[in-house]
């Protein structure tokens, strides 16, 4: 969307907002999903669209896909087109934090306005059914014994799965830069490698492999969440003596330099949406975990994530 039209739209919305001060019902938003159709951020953006409209927190919401480079293409475009705008949102998450660093993206998350953290899914560490590793301790012992032959499968290089594999390797007492991580296009393809017994262990979002874990085809050793989660038998890494936590969070952002009242109006609309039964129902259907945090808390959180992810990526040699 161009500068001109976004300005025009912003003006229209601003007029509408003046006429009726009630928050929400009059919002006409567009959400940028910085990924193609079918991806995680696309799903999050469309879920937010659905929940905001159905719960009456926005009159209309349009989702626009701007795929590319782990979300950094969408981020760069958004940072430019949504400056000061009160009708444009962006969905993003931990993968974007990593992609900004590995791609040397000129625009980072500090140039947009964090509105709210929405969901946070645990990653799960699994081994194939036939694996000799029965517990997390067995796996960490194997890593320590022979890091090269402990082969991991997971999503793309530098993503959350890769970062977790490196963190666990480090915590197990081996060199994280030697981790033998085989990247697949996503949890699905990695799953086939797990079921085929071609790798030692795998990492993916819990929801993605839930079926195989429940059917017993995969053995879940641990989740990356800080606390146990109801309904998930596998215990956190931390509770099992591996001091690592990593949450695959997704959040929503507004453009740079927005006025305080716009920020307040947008975050209220999001906060009300997150509390709505419509949103809770979507979370349940998609198997997402609620991880809501308001704007200020979210901003601090991003800063600490940025540091942690950066340190890990430098250790694996993916970022400078």
């Amino acid at each position: 969307m161009s500068f001109f039209t976004s300005r025009l739209a912003a003006a229209c919305i601003a007029v509408a907002a003046m006429v009726s001060p009630a928050v929400g019902q009059d919002l006409e938003l567009s959400i940028i999903a910085p990924a193609g159709a079918g991806g995680g951020w696309d799903a999050a953006a469309r879920a937010l669209q659905d929940a905001m409209v159905k719960s009456g927190n926005a009159r209309s919401v349009q989702v626009q896909n701007v795929p590319g480079a782990g979300g950094t293409v969408g981020l760069a475009q958004f940072a430019q087109s949504a400056r000061g705008s009160d009708d444009q949102l962006l969905v993003g998450g931990i993968t974007m934090v990593g992609a900004i660093l590995t791609n040397n993206s000129p625009v980072d998350l500090s140039s947009v306005t964090p509105l709210a953290r929405l969901t946070g899914d645990p990653l799960v560490v699994v081994v194939p059914k036939a694996s000799p590793d029965q517990t997390l301790a067995d796996l960490t012992a194997a890593i320590k014994g022979d890091v090269a032959n402990t082969i991991w499968a997971g999503g793309s290089a530098g993503g959350a799965d890769h970062i977790l594999a490196a963190l666990i390797t480090q915590a197990a007492g081996a060199d994280p830069s030697k981790v033998n991580y085989v990247a697949y296009s996503g949890g699905g393809e990695a799953l086939a490698a797990m079921l085929g017994g071609q790798v030692t262990a795998g990492i993916s979002g819990y929801g993605e492999w839930q079926g195989q874990i429940e059917s017993g085809d995969l053995r879940a050793l641990a989740i990356s969440y800080p606390e146990p989660i109801e309904g998930i038998a596998a215990q956190p890494l931390k509770a099992q003596g591996v001091d690592v936590e990593l949450v695959n969070w997704r959040g929503v952002f507004a453009g740079p330099d927005i006025p305080d009242e716009t920020k307040a109006a947008l975050s209220t609309a999001i906060a009300n949406t997150v509390k709505s039964p419509e949103w809770q129902e979507i979370l349940k259907a998609r198997g997402w975990t609620d991880y809501y945090a308001p704007a200020d808390e979210f901003a601090t959180f991003i800063a600490s994530e940025n540091e942690r992810v950066g340190a890990t990526l430098r250790a694996i040699g993916l970022a400078k």
Binding site: A37, E208, G211
Partner: peptide
């Protein structure tokens, strides 16, 4: 498997 192998399947 819940595994999409093409964009259409995703």
């Amino acid at each position: 498997l819940g595994l999409p192998t093409s964009a259409t399947a995703a």
